[in-house]
Simulated assay, not measured.
Amino acid sequence: MGSSSDSPERVDGLTGTVVRGVFGKGSKSEREAVWLEADGRRLVLRRKAGPSFADDALDKYVGKRVKCDGFVVGYTLLAERIETLR
């Protein structure tokens, strides 16, 4: 059974580095964003209970390695939990 990139994919313990920069450069949806570089993927990082854009609560994770639980929908990680790794 195939899955659509728009179907939520549950992830537990996804680890990567949080980066802030221009996301979608050269596209109509180009914007400043915070994303997770993990497993060769670049996923826009959102908190499940946070705003869709400009979530200042994510600033503390920029430049850090983290472990996340949540759902990947398309190119977005909707995080239920974000833990900083040492």
Rank of each mutant, 00 (worst) to 15 (best):
G26W: 06
D6F: 09
C68F: 05
G50Y: 09
V18G: 00
L58M: 08
A54D: 15
S5G: 12
E80A: 07
F53I: 15
L58E: 01
G16R: 00
E37V: 09
R81G: 05
L14I: 11
V34D: 02
V62M: 04
R10E: 09
F71Y: 13
S7N: 13
T76N: 14
P8K: 06
R41S: 10
T15P: 04
S7K: 07
A57M: 09
P51W: 10
L43P: 01
E32Q: 14
Y75E: 15
A33T: 09
R65I: 00
A49D: 12
R47M: 08
V18H: 00
G2M: 13
G70Q: 09
V44N: 03
V73W: 03
K60W: 08
R86M: 05
V18S: 00
V22P: 03
V19F: 09
D39A: 07
A33H: 05
D12P: 01
G40T: 09
S7A: 15
S7Y: 06
R47K: 15
K60Q: 14
T84I: 11
S29F: 13
I82E: 01
V62F: 04
V11L: 05
T76W: 10
L36W: 02
D6Y: 07
R46G: 05
G70C: 08
L43W: 00
V19Q: 06
L43Y: 01
R31G: 07
P8M: 05
V66W: 03
V34M: 06
A38T: 05
A57F: 11
T76G: 11
G74P: 09
D56N: 13
F23V: 14
D55P: 14
M1G: 15
Y75C: 12
L78F: 12
G40H: 08
R31L: 07
V19S: 07
K67W: 04
A49S: 13
C68M: 11
R65L: 00
K60D: 11
G74V: 08
L14F: 04
V44W: 02
L36D: 02
L78G: 08
P51H: 10
R65C: 00
K48C: 12
G21N: 10
S7C: 07
A38H: 03
V44G: 02
D12L: 08
T76Q: 14
G16P: 04
S3H: 11
E37W: 11
R10L: 08
K64E: 06
G70S: 09
K67H: 09
K67I: 09
A38Q: 02
R81T: 14
L14D: 01
R42W: 00
F53S: 15
L78A: 12
G13F: 00
D56Q: 13
G16D: 01
D6P: 03
D55F: 05
M1C: 14
A57N: 11
R46D: 05
V73S: 05
G50K: 11
R10C: 07
G26E: 11
V73P: 04
D39I: 02
A54V: 15
E83S: 06
L77T: 02
R46M: 08
D69H: 04
P8N: 10
A49W: 14
L43D: 00
A79L: 08
D59I: 11
W35D: 04
S5A: 14
M1Y: 13
L85E: 02
S52H: 12
C68E: 07
S4G: 10
K60I: 13
S52Y: 15
L77C: 06
G74D: 11
G74S: 14
L77P: 01
L43M: 07
L45I: 09
